[in-house]
Amino acid sequence: MSAVVVRSARAEDQAALAALWAAAFTPPLAPDQWLVDDERLSHTLVAEDDEGVCGSIYGLPKRLRETDGGVAQVHAIGSVAVAERARGRGLARRLVAATLDAAGDADWALLFTGTPEVYRSSGFTTFSMPRTMAGPWAASATAVEPASVVRESVGLGVLGPLRAVYERSRTGVVVLAPVRGDRDWTMAEVRLRGATLYRLAEADATVGYAVAEVRDGVGLLHESATDPTAADSPALRRAVLEAVAADWAAAGVRVCELAIPALAAEEAAVRAFAPAAARQDDRTGMIRPLRREARVDGIRHFTAGDYF
């Protein structure tokens, strides 16, 4: 059994990393989102044995909102993978320890996982958040699609007009919501690629939007927001959701999954949009203090476009 070395990733590792992630994750993890991070090699550690790359971990700096209205510097951990030949040797713990050592001035670390037992020994604890509403869906008989909502397929550069309304809708009310920089927006565009952006504008400024799609007959609402400073924010939210509903009705959607923060205004709108949908708690998130404890009491939410 050869010794395993943990080191920074190099350009020549990219093909091996893509193969490792394709084998280690179900469904296979494509490197598309990782590839748009210009600093991806410095953010990635690999484990290497005599046969080559046998493990990986990705540590991405993010700025996340906290309970007190402040913003934390967070070490967001993803792409933790160990090749089958190297499992059972504590390699995942070594990779976690190494990325935490490289976390710099991060206040705390965050990851999402379906195997929390792997990370508890490294000091991570699980938290929950009411991230989605899911259940049966049917179009309202009285819904009228607004002509003012513009549709566009999500791709690189498409989400730029959403920046201001996204920030205003999250600041001070949604804990964990990232303060998105250029890299965050580009990674969201890659992750949401192919979904439909429904955008409502007034005087050339976006005042409301949703990102949604139909996949295998299920209506998926990945993200939505309206400008809380607009004159009639509830009406804007209804208009955007009615446009989504028109497309879902045409596609024969009968089941939905809606990723929205558990805010009162959001709840009211979604109750009208999907009366039979029920709140679903997500317990895949884990946090570890670094420089200090995380301050994440309150309404927590993390959208599909921000996973890493």
Rank of each mutant, 00 (worst) to 15 (best):
V158E: 05
R193K: 08
E167F: 08
V173F: 05
L162G: 01
L159A: 05
W185R: 11
V150W: 05
V179Y: 10
P161I: 03
R151C: 09
R183N: 12
E189W: 08
E167R: 15
L192C: 02
E152G: 09
E152Q: 15
V150P: 04
W185P: 09
R170S: 13
V179R: 14
V190Q: 09
R180D: 00
G155D: 14
Y166S: 05
Y166T: 07
S148R: 15
L192Q: 04
P178F: 01
E167P: 09
L156W: 11
G155Q: 14
V175Y: 00
G157Q: 10
R151I: 00
S153N: 14
S153R: 15
V154F: 05
V149F: 05
E167L: 15
V179P: 09
G157D: 07
V165I: 04
G172C: 06
V154R: 03
D182V: 12
E152K: 13
R168F: 10
L162P: 00
G172P: 00
G181L: 03
A164T: 14
T186S: 14
D184R: 03
P178I: 01
D182E: 12
V150C: 08
L159F: 08
D184A: 10
Y166C: 06
D184M: 06
G181D: 14
A188I: 03
Y166M: 04
T171C: 12
V158Q: 03
L159K: 08
A177D: 00
V158K: 06
W185L: 12
A164R: 15
S169D: 07
V165W: 01
G160M: 10
V174R: 01
R168V: 11
G172H: 02
S169N: 04
A177T: 01
R170D: 06
E189L: 11
V175A: 01
V150D: 13
V179T: 13
L159H: 05
P161W: 02
L162H: 01
S153K: 15
P161A: 02
G181E: 12
R193V: 07
L159D: 03
L192F: 04
R170M: 15
R180F: 06
L176K: 01
V149I: 09
V165F: 02
R191N: 07
V190E: 07
G181T: 03
T186R: 15
G172V: 05
D182K: 11
V179H: 11
V190G: 11
E189D: 11
G172M: 00
G181M: 07
V158A: 09
E152A: 15
P161H: 01
V158M: 03
V154I: 03
L192G: 05
V173R: 13
G155L: 08
L162Y: 03
R168T: 13
V174L: 04
E167W: 12
E152R: 15
E152N: 10
V173M: 10
V174C: 09
P161F: 02
G160P: 04
L176F: 07
V174T: 08
G160I: 12
P161V: 04
V190L: 06
L156N: 13
V154T: 02
R163W: 06
T171Q: 12
V165P: 06
V149D: 06
S148D: 15
E152Y: 06
A188H: 02
R183H: 11
D184F: 01
V175D: 01
R163C: 10
E189C: 09
G155M: 07
A188Q: 07
G172F: 00
M187K: 15
P161L: 00
L176R: 08
